[in-house]
Computed example of a mutant assay.
Amino acid sequence: MSRPLFISLDGPKGTGKTTLLEAVTAALRANHKKVVRLCEKNSDPYRGETMGLVNQLVRHPDPALEWAVCERFADSRGWISRHVLPEQPSDSIILIDRWYPSDAAFRRLIPFAQILQLNLDRQVQVPDLHVGVVTDPQISWARAAARRRGLNSTVLHTLEEHAACTHAFERAVADHGWVLCRNEGSIEEATRQVVCAIENLPSGRQHGGLQGNAEA
């Protein structure tokens, strides 16, 4: 049975990920592709309760509490995998704004390998393509400062924290073989890179997903 092509875009704050998603959507649709854009945050029915735990974690860093946050996010992604993704047209490309790779950036106390296995154990759908969107921390920090909402982060408050988040995410991209998109030039250049990666996926969707990530 055919299913939609599932692409996740993840990365630290301020990297232009949402703007890139919009540009990639427009480019794919111009090539007569059927595109569905989703956002993990907006599709998560338990988001309010989970963010309450995240706020506690910011005030009182604790591995047990962070693990509880990871479990809640994984449970939500499992729910989205069962109830939202299957409802999309089988001939579409789903672009989702954040998925489990983002935990590599924002979780500080639990190793990402454990978080990844947790998501796999919860039957979270593995994307056909993971795209990690990054910039130099100084660039994304400056971009965020120029926005009305700023960095808009619950867990990051300083440039040093943001830089650590960026470097941790870049290590995960390298370790797991995700597509790295450095969004420091023109949006057209970044868009071409992502669209090319999508169009070059093998017809059998051999994405290095479940086994490749679990072994990394």
Rank of each mutant, 00 (worst) to 15 (best):
L65A: 08
W67R: 13
C70M: 14
E71Q: 14
E71S: 11
R72G: 15
F73R: 01
F73K: 00
F73C: 01
R77Y: 11
G78T: 04
W79M: 05
W79S: 05
W79P: 02
S81H: 02
R82S: 08
H83D: 04
V84I: 15
L85W: 04
P86D: 11
P86Y: 10
E87P: 03
E87L: 14
E87V: 08
P89C: 07
P89G: 06
P89Y: 03
S90F: 06
D91R: 01
S92C: 10
S92I: 02
S92W: 02
I94Y: 02
L95R: 03
L95V: 04
L95A: 02
I96K: 00
I96Q: 00
D97Y: 07
Y100I: 06
P101C: 06
P101N: 06
P101D: 07
S102A: 13
S102I: 09
S102D: 11
D103P: 03
A104C: 06
A105T: 02
R107M: 14
R107L: 12
R107T: 10
R107E: 13
R108S: 11
I110D: 01
I110E: 00
I110W: 06
P111Y: 06
F112P: 00
Q114C: 09
Q114F: 07
I115L: 08
L116W: 06
Q117Y: 05
L118Y: 02
N119G: 03
L120Q: 11
R122M: 13
R122K: 15
R122Y: 13
R122S: 10
R122F: 09
Q123T: 07
V124P: 00
Q125H: 08
V126A: 13
V126N: 04
V126I: 12
P127K: 04
P127I: 07
D128I: 04
L129S: 03
L129C: 07
H130Q: 11
H130W: 11
V131D: 00
V131H: 01
V131L: 05
V133S: 06
V134I: 15
T135Q: 13
T135N: 10
T135K: 10
P137M: 09
P137Y: 07
W141T: 03
A142N: 15
A142V: 11
R143I: 08
A144R: 07
A145Q: 15
A145K: 12
A145H: 11
A146F: 08
R147H: 08
R148V: 15
R148T: 14
R149F: 10
R149C: 12
G150I: 09
G150V: 14
S153G: 12
V155M: 15
V155R: 11
L156E: 15
H157I: 13
H157T: 15
H157M: 12
H157W: 13
T158G: 14
T158K: 14
L159I: 15
E160K: 12
